[in-house]
């Protein structure tokens, strides 16, 4: 019995398509290499001169290191006030320790959490063009300045430019070892508010 040899179809890659693909790959690498190179170029970053006033702030960001930061805002006042009411029977030293321990436990943010908190602050600033926000950034002296610049760049990028900032040196330990931390009731505008007051050593 004679077997017919099966015809094998040779699968050829079409030359035109191949050239087409090569060109597309070339264009792709050109474009992506440009995209990758751009951020490495030296850029000028314009930032407003920070406010050089000591005293009051609405939001306090204490940079701990390149990965963590301590955040205090008006919600922290409510936490401190609740502790004062619940543990008012403690000695002043005991109350101070309890407040600081609670804040240290709840208000130390990773940089992702910090970014979220700042994003919500920016949203508030965008929704209320007439409102003014002041953020105090405290940073240890030995931390690279890029950590602070990152925060400033993020916060200043608002359409109404209604977030201002101050920059001072300081460590988390200055807050955790403060002489006293408590709330004070103040009349701000037409509102009566409880604010945190920190007496540093």
């Amino acid at each position: 019995m004679a077997f017919r040899k099966l015809k094998r179809h040779k699968e050829n890659v079409e030359l035109v398509s191949l050239i087409d693909m090569i060109f597309i790959l070339l264009v792709f690498f050109l474009v992506t290499s440009y995209v990758i190179r751009t951020p490495l170029e030296e850029r000028s970053l314009y930032i407003p001169t920070p406010e050089n006033t000591l005293g009051r702030t609405q939001i306090l960001i204490q940079i701990i290191d390149g990965e963590k930061a301590f955040w205090l805002d008006e919600t922290s006042s409510a936490v401190v006030s609740a502790i004062e009411e619940e543990f008012g029977f403690l000695s002043p030293e005991g109350l101070r320790t309890r407040i600081l321990n609670t804040l240290a436990q709840n208000n130390v943010y990773s940089f992702e959490q910090l970014q979220q908190a700042m994003q919500s602050l920016k949203s508030r600033a965008e929704r209320n063009p007439a409102a003014r926000f002041f953020v105090l950034i405290r940073c240890p002296d030995e931390v690279p300045y890029s950590s602070v610049l990152h925060l400033i760049t993020f916060l200043m990028d608002t359409p109404h430019r209604n977030i201002r900032y101050g920059c001072v040196a300081g460590r988390l330990n200055d807050i955790l070892e403060c002489r006293n931390i408590y709330t004070v009731t103040e009349d701000i505008g037409s509102r009566r508010m409880k604010n945190i007051r920190i007496d540093f050593q």
Binding site: E42, I47, T49, P50, D141, P144, L149, C167
Partner: peptide
């Protein structure tokens, strides 16, 4: 560069208030 150096420059500029309203920063790659 450590924050202390940059802060010192910012503080000195800030001392002049609105006379020096902005700082331009370049990160030297």
């Amino acid at each position: 560069t450590e924050f202390r150096i940059i802060r010192f420059i910012m503080d000195r500029c800030s001392a002049y208030g609105d006379t020096i309203p902005r700082i331009i920063v370049h990160t030297l790659t």
